[in-house]
Amino acid sequence: MSKEILDPQKWVELYADMMYRFALVRVKDPEAADELVQATFFAALKSQHTFAGKSSEKTWLFGILKHKIMDHFRSSKKHISIDLTSNEGPDRIKFDSSGHMSPKPGNWNIDPEKAAENNELAQVLAECLKALPKKYHKLFILREIDGLSSDEICKEFNIKPTNLWVILHRARNQLKLCLETNWLNTK
C-alpha cells in the first residue's frame, strides 16, 4: 500500500472551505471558525514530521481541527458559569392564587408536527432566541437544536444536572411567552 504524503501548498484549495464549515457548524461564530482553520494549518505545518502516512491527509488535518475545536470550547467554558440566584436569567414563572400559571397558557391551535413547517412561527422563534440571555441561549441550543444529552452538557460545562434542568425550564418558558406575545397575538 502506498504511503500518503502531505502537500501543504494545496491545503487551502482542497480543504479550507470544508474545514471552515465543519468548524462553523460547531462554534457558530465565523471569526472563531476562521481562526480555528488557520490554527489547524499552523499546527499541521509545524508537526508535519509526525504524519506517518497511515491515514489520509484530509483525515489527519480534520483530526487536528477537532482538537482545536475542543480547546476552543474548553477555553470558553469559563463564560458559562451559571448563577441561578442572579436576576440575569429569564423571568421566573408566576402563579395565581389557585396555583395556575399566570398568564394561563394560550391556545396555540397548532399540531406540533405541523408547527415545524410553519415558517412564520420559525422566524418569530429565531427572534425570541436572540432575546434569551447568552448562557441560556447556548444551553438551549446545545440541548434542543444540537441534540446533546443532559449528561454531555453537564460534563462539558461542569454544571449540575439539576441546575441545567432549571435553566432549560426557564429558557423554554421565556421562549413560550415570547411566542405567545409575538406570534399568537398577531395571527
Binding site: 406540533p112 408547527a115 422563534l125 437544536i145 421562549l175
Partner: peptide
C-alpha cells in the same frame, strides 16, 4: 403540548 411544539420548531430551525 406547547413545549413540544416549541422544541420541534427549534429543531426545524436548526
Amino acid at each position: 403540548k406547547q413545549l413540544e411544539t416549541l422544541c420541534k420548531v427549534a429543531r426545524a430551525l436548526g
